[in-house]
Simulated assay, not measured.
Amino acid sequence: MPKILPKSGAGREVLPDLYAFLSRIVNLSPLFPNGPVDLGSSVLPLPEDGSIPHLPGWRWLRRRI
C-alpha cells in the first residue's frame, strides 16, 4: 500500500495567479467587440477541391456531423 505524502503547499500559488489572470481579462473586456464583426471581402469560401489558396501542399478537410 503506497504511503500518503503530506500536503506540500506547492499548489497554493495557483489560485491567486488564476484570479489575477481572470481579473486582467475582465478589465480588458470593454476592448472586445460585443456585436457582429463585418469582415467584408477578407473571408472567401474554400475551393471545393480541398486546396488552400497560398498554401501549396496543404488541404482542408470537411468534417461531417
Rank of each mutant, 00 (worst) to 15 (best):
L61A: 14
K3H: 13
A10D: 05
I4Y: 05
F32S: 04
K3G: 13
L55S: 13
P33Q: 00
K3Y: 15
L44M: 15
P30H: 03
P30G: 00
A20Q: 03
R12E: 08
P30N: 10
D17T: 11
G50C: 06
L46E: 10
M1N: 13
I25W: 09
I4E: 13
P45G: 06
L5R: 02
G11P: 03
R62D: 06
P53W: 12
V26C: 10
N27L: 11
D17E: 15
S51M: 10
L15Q: 06
R59V: 08
V37Y: 07
R64Q: 14
R62V: 01
S42R: 03
E48C: 03
P2Y: 07
N34Y: 15
P53N: 07
L22C: 08
I65N: 07
L61D: 14
A20P: 10
R64C: 01
P30K: 09
H54C: 04
I52A: 05
G9C: 06
P56S: 00
S41N: 13
F32V: 05
L61H: 14
F21A: 07
R24T: 03
I52H: 07
R63N: 14
L15A: 00
P2V: 13
R59Q: 09
R59N: 11
R64A: 09
L18G: 12
M1D: 06
M1W: 08
G57F: 01
P47V: 06
